[in-house]
Amino acid sequence: MSDDSGLWLLAVGPVGATALYWALYRYYRNTDKSHAFERETDVMAKPVTGSDHKVDEIKGTQERRIDGDNVSAYRQRVQRVRGDSS
């Protein structure tokens, strides 16, 4: 019997590891299926409107959060501007 018959078994490890790495990379990165926002999305920029005025001033507070903050209410904070699509 020849000693070369078990050599293929040594090649299975690196080849299998490379195949697993590539499969996981393709699965999690999805580079071929990702949305190219810069090329495929048309965003019409408009001037920023609104006002900025001081409401109150609190000094020396020990609170970690502000009462009534909306940091977890994403849909309330960020809303799509409805308007003409031209």
Score class of each variant (00 low, 15 high):
Asp42Gly: 00
Gln76Ser: 07
Phe37Val: 11
Arg75Leu: 04
Glu57Ala: 09
Arg29Cys: 08
Tyr21His: 11
Ile58Lys: 01
Tyr21Leu: 15
Gly13Glu: 07
Val48Asn: 04
Leu9Asn: 09
Leu20Lys: 04
Val81Pro: 02
Leu10Gln: 07
Arg64Leu: 10
Val15Phe: 09
Asp3Val: 09
Glu63Ser: 08
Val12Trp: 08
Gly50Ala: 04
Val12Thr: 13
Ala19Gln: 02
Lys46Ala: 12
Ala23Gly: 06
Met44Leu: 10
Arg64Trp: 03
Thr49Pro: 00
Thr41Ala: 07
Ala19Met: 12
Asp52Val: 15
Ser72Ala: 13
Phe37Asn: 10
Ser5Pro: 00
Gln76Ala: 14
Gly60Ala: 05
Gln76Glu: 14
Tyr74Met: 13
Ser86Met: 06
Arg80His: 09
Val71His: 01
Tyr27Phe: 14
Thr61Phe: 01
Gly16Tyr: 01
Ala45Tyr: 03
Lys54Ala: 08
Thr31Ser: 07
Pro14Gln: 03
Asp84Val: 04
Asp67Pro: 03
Tyr27Gly: 06
Asp4Gly: 04
Asp56His: 01
Val78Trp: 01
Asn30Thr: 09
Leu10Pro: 00
Met1Ile: 15
Val15Ser: 11
Ser72Tyr: 06
Ser34Trp: 02
Val78Pro: 00
Arg82Lys: 15
Asp69Tyr: 00
Tyr28Lys: 04
Thr49Leu: 11
Leu9Val: 11
Val48Cys: 07
Leu9Trp: 09
Ser51His: 13
Leu20Ile: 15
Asp42Lys: 08
Thr49Cys: 06
Val71Met: 07
Glu63Cys: 00
Asp42Ile: 10
Arg64Ser: 13
Val48Ser: 10
Pro47Ser: 11
Asp32Ala: 11
Ser86Ile: 05
Ser34Leu: 03
Leu7Val: 00
Asp67Ser: 03
Ala11Trp: 08
Ser51Thr: 15
Gly68Lys: 02
Gly13Met: 12
Asp4Glu: 11
Thr61Val: 03
Asp32Gly: 06
Asp4Val: 14
Tyr27Ala: 14
Arg64Pro: 01
Val81Gln: 10
Tyr27Glu: 10
Leu7Tyr: 03
Ile58Glu: 02
Ser51Pro: 00
Ser85Arg: 11
Ala11Lys: 04
Asn30Cys: 11
Thr31Tyr: 08
Ser85Ala: 11
Gly13Trp: 12
Tyr28Leu: 02
Gly6Val: 13
Ala23Leu: 14
Ile58Ala: 04
Asp4His: 06
Arg82Phe: 13
Ser34Arg: 10
Arg77Phe: 02
Asp84Gly: 08
Lys33Asp: 15
Gly50Pro: 04
Lys54Thr: 04
His53Gly: 03
Gln76His: 08
Val55Tyr: 01
Met44Glu: 12
